[in-house]
Design a protein around this nucleic acid. Structure first.
Length: 469
RNA sequence: GGUCCCAUCGUUUAAUGGUUAGGACGCCAGGUUUUCAUCCUGGUAAUCCGGGUUCGAUUCCCGGUGGGAUCACCA
């Protein structure tokens, strides 16, 4: 396969939409699979929506996700001359024309068209202007835009995920390509840039499908090569409407902030509406790249199933190496990660779906929290029994040496040996022991807790429980 | 309203002109376990509707219905 040059071209809104991540991922997979390049382009031609620092935060998020781009960022607002040259060429070839219509007139026209149930479309009033009239208006500095002149005919969009889609030019509006502030609209900028940057594959959200014929018409006017298009389906809310902030997080940064791991996010987001093999859920980045096939992307929208993301994130948290876990967990913890906390993390990783849950899980390990004495008592026993068993097991633990605390199995073995020797029930001993150590009704096993605390603190907590009884 | 896109369990996906329509998440039940989580086993649940083509349609075609996108000097 020929090397593909792909791009991700977000508008700088201050955060990365998960849909943006998905098209970025698909583009990245394709570029890497074919030995091509993945390019970042910032589409900031709408100055009214400019957000300070947005580009930097976008780049940081890509970095946090471990996604590198080969070129860029290219910034459209810094490339205005390119667009002007190309707009002038269109004008010279009569493929575009000046329009001096006021916004009021356009709005009024649109309103009328809607009332008569017509498709809102520019009526080409300014196309009737003579060149003298146009020059006069330009000389007097009248506000104007440039519109592309849609020729007659039809355009077939060859889409990698949807097949051929036909559009009749009579349904297409004479799109504004240069705004009155001199900035190009998306339609001109994207066509010019994709050409200048030798983009071979345009992968974007399906909301762009209706404007793709405009882009193809422009490419033909310029005699540019037409890239391959792939319009991927939208990500949806649980109620199947277009994913929106109102119904959950749409920003990748929000997911990162909650402690979803980059690899989980990448795996989950890229296999929404797409599955490389059909019989697996978990893929490494390398597998996603090697197996990628854009034509396998489904053409229907996909609902974000957060529960599945949670499951997948839990899977990846458990897969982290010890060191990776400590590093990843650090931003989510308010305390220093000392040896005890490290051990606690290794135990509690099993019980969290997101790293942000760690702090709460770890808290009981820090200091002996207060608890009701009743919670020490197993449902099948009484206070006396609990006290007796705690004293017994305390004896066992006091007889152990520090090295015995290195392995959970050793601790479990010793305690279980004691239970068997005394002819006791697991529950009678282990329940009080566990609560004595954790202070909680639900927690990790007493052996794990003993391992985390070590000899001294373990004994201390057990003694405290005994005194409570 | 015009144009366009889409339609398999609740969700996400797989498969095929002939299958008991498969997997995953969730949910339910059982097992392991002192508890929680994990883990293991089992279960629940789907081809939108109507025609056509065909020996046979979930699959191909047409229509309907439903959902979605778009119709800006936003991207």
């Amino acid at each position: 396969m020929k090397p593909a040059r792909t791009r991700i071209a977000p508008s700088p809104t201050g955060y990365m939409h998960v849909g943006t991540l998905r098209t970025a991922l698909f583009s990245y997979f394709l570029a890497h699979q074919t030995g091509g390049q993945f390019i970042l382009r910032i589409e900031d031609t709408d100055r009214t929506r400019f957000v300070e620092g947005a580009t930097e935060s976008l780049i940081k998020t890509f970095k946090d996700l471990g996604i590198e781009f080969d070129e860029g960022p290219f910034v459209q607002s810094e490339r205005l001359t390119e667009y002007k040259i190309h707009a002038d060429r269109l004008l010279a070839d009569s493929n575009a024309y000046y329009c001096f219509c006021s916004r009021d007139r356009l709005e009024e026209m649109r309103k009328q068209q809607q009332e008569t149930k017509q498709t809102p479309k520019y009526d080409r009033a300014c196309l009737k202007l003579t060149s003298d009239e146009i020059q006069k208006k330009l000389d007097s500095g009248e506000n104007h835009v440039i519109r592309m002149k849609i020729p007659e005919g039809e355009t077939i969009v060859k889409d990698l995920v949807r097949g051929n889609v036909k559009f009749n030019h009579s349904d297409i509006d004479d799109q504004v390509i240069v705004k009155s502030d001199g900035y190009p609209t998306y339609h001109l900028a994207v066509v010019v840039d994709d050409f200048l940057m030798n983009i071979t594959h345009v992968i974007r959200g399906e909301e762009w499908l209706p404007s793709t014929p405009k882009h193809i018409i422009l490419q033909k006017m310029f005699d540019f090569d037409i890239p391959q298009f792939a319009h991927v389906p939208l990500l949806l809310n649980p109620d199947k409407t277009k994913l929106s902030k109102r119904q959950g997080d749409v920003a990748v940064e929000d997911y990162l902030k909650k402690g979803y791991l980059p690899q989980a996010l990448i795996n989950f987001i890229s296999t929404l509406g797409y599955n490389p093999t059909g019989d697996r859920e978990v893929y490494t980045m390398q597998e996603l790249i090697d197996l990628f096939d854009i034509t396998k992307v489904k053409s229907s929208g996909a609902v974000m199933n957060i529960e599945k993301l949670d499951w997948m994130n839990n899977h990846y948290i458990k897969e982290l190496s010890d060191e990776e876990l400590f590093v990843m967990a650090k931003p989510f913890l308010s305390m220093e990660i000392d040896k005890t906390i490290q051990k606690a993390l290794l135990i509690e990783r099993e019980r969290v779906n997101r790293l942000e849950e760690l702090e709460e899980k770890i808290t009981p390990y820090l200091k002996a929290t207060s608890y009701a004495k009743e919670s020490l008592i197993w449902k099948k026993a009484d206070a006396l029994d609990a006290k007796k068993n705690l004293e017994g097991v305390l004896g066992v633990i006091e007889n152990l040496n520090d090295p015995d605390f290195d392995k959970i199995e050793t601790l479990e073995g010793e305690v279980k040996k004691y239970i068997e020797r005394e002819g006791l029930q697991n529950g009678n001993v282990l329940w009080p022991l566990r609560v004595a150590l954790s202070g909680q009704e639900k927690s990790a096993s007493p052996f794990e807790l003993l391992w985390v605390f070590g000899r001294e603190q373990g004994i201390e907590r057990i003694k405290k429980a005994i005194s409570l009884l």
